[in-house]
Amino acid sequence: MDVFMKGLSKAKEGVVAAAEKTKQGVAEAAGKTKEGVLYVGSKTKEGVVHGVATVAEKTKEQVTNVGGAVVTGVTAVAQKTVEGAGSIAAATGFVKKDQLGKNEEGAPQEGILEDMPVDPDNEAYEMPSEEGYQDYEPEA
């Protein structure tokens, strides 16, 4: 019985440690998101679009440190934060509304985080759909 109880105690310690790591990862992701939003706020009209992409990228980098179902929630929060940063930029006159959601080359930025393969159960990952990809044929 002692062996059984000791095993359960060790398992509990492992769960607590994993929860603490997840909590730490979420806190880091939130900190990076805040950094990115402050970065966007300090940019001029020309830099705002690039700044919004930076927020998304920093958040995406930190999301990889967070495991399990938390990833889905962090990704949703990050996307809403990026959308909010863009709205703030438009409201303050840093950028025109028609410039939001495009990178410096004018290509749409939507789907940055949505296409990231995420499995809350950590069982399997699927690649994003290939609808947006084109076949590449090298020139002879």
Rank of each mutant, 00 (worst) to 15 (best):
V15Y: 14
T75H: 01
D121N: 13
T81P: 01
E83W: 03
A69H: 12
I88K: 03
V26N: 00
D2G: 01
A69M: 15
A124E: 12
V74L: 11
Y125K: 07
V49K: 12
A124S: 10
L100N: 13
V26C: 05
Q62R: 07
K21S: 08
G67Q: 13
G67E: 02
G14K: 06
V82L: 12
V55S: 01
T59L: 05
D115R: 11
M5T: 02
P138F: 11
H50C: 11
T72I: 15
V16H: 11
L113H: 05
V66R: 01
T64G: 05
T64F: 03
E20P: 00
T59P: 01
H50P: 04
E105N: 13
G31K: 11
E105G: 08
E114A: 14
D119E: 11
M1D: 01
Q109I: 10
A17L: 07
F4L: 05
T33F: 02
K21T: 06
G73Y: 01
D98L: 12
E83V: 00
G93Q: 07
T44G: 09
V55L: 08
K32I: 09
K21R: 04
E110M: 15
E139W: 10
G86I: 05
K102T: 07
V70D: 04
K80H: 08
E139N: 08
V15P: 00
A124M: 04
T75D: 05
H50T: 08
L100V: 06
G51P: 03
D2L: 09
D115N: 14
E35D: 01
Q134W: 11
K60H: 09
S87D: 08
Y133L: 13
M116H: 07
K96I: 14
P117H: 04
T92Q: 10
A30W: 08
V52T: 00
P117R: 04
K34H: 06
E110P: 03
S129F: 14
A17C: 09
V55G: 02
E13M: 00
D98G: 09
E139C: 11
M127E: 13
H50Q: 01
M127R: 12
T81A: 12
E61S: 07
E105W: 12
E105V: 12
T44P: 01
V74Y: 03
K43P: 00
A69S: 07
G106P: 06
K23E: 00
A78G: 07
N65E: 07
E20H: 15
A11Y: 15
D2F: 13
T33H: 04
A78H: 09
F94D: 05
F4N: 00
A19N: 01
A56H: 08
D119K: 15
E139K: 09
I112C: 09
V82C: 12
K23A: 09
V66H: 04
T44L: 06
P120G: 07
Q134S: 13
T72Q: 02
V77I: 06
G36P: 04
P120H: 05
Q134I: 06
G106E: 10
S9H: 04
S129Y: 09
S129A: 09
G51Q: 02
K60Y: 07
V26G: 00
K6G: 01
